[in-house]
């Protein structure tokens, strides 16, 4: 006798068992907080938030290092957080004596920001590390917590880099700047209002280059009186690279 449900009965039973197993299994296996706020495990948020902190934040540093903090806040580095240079210091705030943060001494850290790179925004202070006081640690001259020098640089080349690099390769390489320029004391600390003086007469050049001057034999001589008398020397010779004649 044909029973139309004959084949379907066992299939239905199997199907029902599978669906029940799925539904029941789901009840047990889905994490408890899943779906509380959305299609995710709500507990995961707390787990992410419980991650350990490595950078303490500059405010914490103030608690103990208020002197340095205050100094820095007045300087051009006021926006540079302590841990930029000293590295992550949360561990130090927990155990100040056991864990001490880095104190970078060399040049490599400063150069990361201040090394010349044409892609950096113009106006950002940059140096050419291979020319700028090569080999000297930055901290010899600059206090990282107040990096702009409060005393005059001892070398003229610190500011007059272009002139010094030209002079360096010229016949005048061995001349001190003071050979021709008298530098007033105020110029070093206040260069814009107190200017260094420049030679005004041909005698300054003549003291070496005049035919009668008492100087080494190799120096080129002219009769300063008659040599293109209508012009001053530096109208044609650039004193920092004098061999160029216009």
């Amino acid at each position: 006798m044909f029973r139309p449900l004959h084949q379907l009965v066992p299939l239905t039973i199997i199907f029902a068992i599978a669906v029940t197993a799925f539904v029941v299994g789901r009840m047990y296996l889905v994490p408890e907080t899943f779906g509380e706020y959305g299609h995710y495990r709500a507990d995961a948020v707390g787990e992410v938030a419980s991650q350990e902190i490595a950078y303490a934040g500059y405010q914490v540093c103030y608690d103990c290092h208020d002197d340095i903090y205050d100094e820095k806040m007045e300087s051009n580095h006021s926006g540079v957080s302590c841990e930029v240079c000293h590295g992550p210091a949360a561990a130090h705030t927990e155990a100040p004596d056991e864990v001490t943060p880095d104190i970078p001494h060399g040049r490599s850290d400063c150069v990361l920001c201040h090394g010349y790179n044409p892609s950096r925004p113009s106006g950002f202070p940059q140096i050419l590390p291979e020319l700028h006081n090569t080999g000297k640690p930055c901290m010899v001259c600059h206090n990282p917590h107040a990096p702009v020098l409060d005393h005059a640089p001892t070398e003229c080349s610190a500011c007059h880099r272009k002139i010094s690099s030209q002079k360096m390769v010229s016949h005048h390489a061995l001349l001190e700047c003071s050979q021709c320029h008298t530098v007033a004391e105020g110029h070093r600390t206040n260069p814009a209002s107190v200017r260094a003086d420049k030679p005004e007469s041909k005698d300054v050049c003549g003291s070496c280059h005049d035919k009668g001057a008492e100087s080494s034999r190799g120096i080129p001589r002219v009769d300063v009186e008659t040599h293109n008398a209508r012009y001053l020397c530096w109208d044609c010779h650039y004193p920092h690279q004098p061999e160029v004649v216009r």
């Binding site: 044909f2 004959h6 084949q7 009965v9 066992p10 199997i14």
Partner: peptide, 11 residues
């Protein structure tokens, strides 16, 4: 067979 052993023509 899952117990469905009826192989009559109609089935």
């Amino acid at each position: 067979t899952l117990g469905a052993t009826d192989i009559s023509k109609k089935s």
